[in-house]
Amino acid sequence: MSRVRKVGLIGWGAIGRVVGGAVAAGGVPGAELVAVVDNRPLGDAVPAPQMTVEQVVEHCDLIVEAAGQGVVRGWGETILASGTDLLVASTGALTDEELSKKLLTTGPGRVYFTGGAVGGLDVLQAVRAMGPLSEIRLTTTKLPSTLEQPWMDEQLLTAMRTATGPVEVMRGTAREVPVRFPKSTNVAASVALAVGDLDAVRVSVVADPAAVHTSHVIEANGPQGSYRFEVRHQPDPANPATSQVVPYAVLRSLAALAGRSGQIL
């Protein structure tokens, strides 16, 4: 009989509430919600005891990060060094190559990543194993209000706020873009992780006032063939900067780690 994974959840926001509620309700066979970590006092709002990170590593063998890139940077090594596994939702943190290397080499805990709001990563990994791709592009389109950042100047902010059609707000690599949009572009990092090259993925971030859905379009070309994946998600009502599907992607990854059989990997 396989062991039950004792799960600690960091973050009780739009993603954490769905993930924590499902695990607590028995929705992930082989996983038990043991604790929740959040920097706010949550009281009876959570279905498991609220703990600090230091406490949760003593009680859990798997921690799910659902609180942002800062948690991965600040606590990733500590969690893994304690022998606890870590499932990362905020893959944008891995654009820091030094941090990525540390997380991949620190143990005895193991680090895992979820694809989040994008599909086709398994195909990109398989294709990349055949050889380098000559061109990889990602276009992410969201509502302007979800893309506003402190570093933007008044001219760009005004263009976004008064736009009547799509406006490109940044173009760069998967190394550059997630740093500038820490809550909105984890997909860029996920694609880069799949192809193994942060600088090969060219990213365009577009603000569109008519973007009812959050859109991610991946296009890749090389000697192996041509590939195009497009997803259009409903934004999460509680946090429009993320897609409604993200917590369910986390739950799927958690189910795989908990040992659920019979699924496509």
Rank of each mutant, 00 (worst) to 15 (best):
A22P: 00
S134M: 00
E77G: 05
A241T: 12
V88K: 08
G8D: 02
I218L: 11
D85P: 02
L265E: 12
R161I: 06
L251Y: 05
L87F: 01
V127R: 08
S2L: 03
L99Q: 10
R3C: 03
T139F: 06
A256E: 09
Y248M: 00
A126H: 10
T84M: 07
T106A: 08
F181H: 09
L133I: 15
A220W: 02
E230M: 10
L265T: 12
V18S: 04
A31Q: 03
E58L: 15
G109E: 12
V4E: 13
L62D: 00
V201Y: 00
T146A: 15
P150W: 15
H216P: 02
A241Q: 12
L87V: 07
T140L: 15
D85V: 00
L157T: 14
L257G: 00
D236F: 03
A249F: 01
R260Y: 11
P240Q: 04
V56Y: 05
A258L: 14
D199T: 07
A238I: 07
G83R: 11
A24W: 01
R17D: 09
D122P: 00
A24H: 03
T146F: 13
E32D: 05
D44L: 11
G107C: 03
R161M: 13
V212R: 06
E32P: 00
Q263M: 15
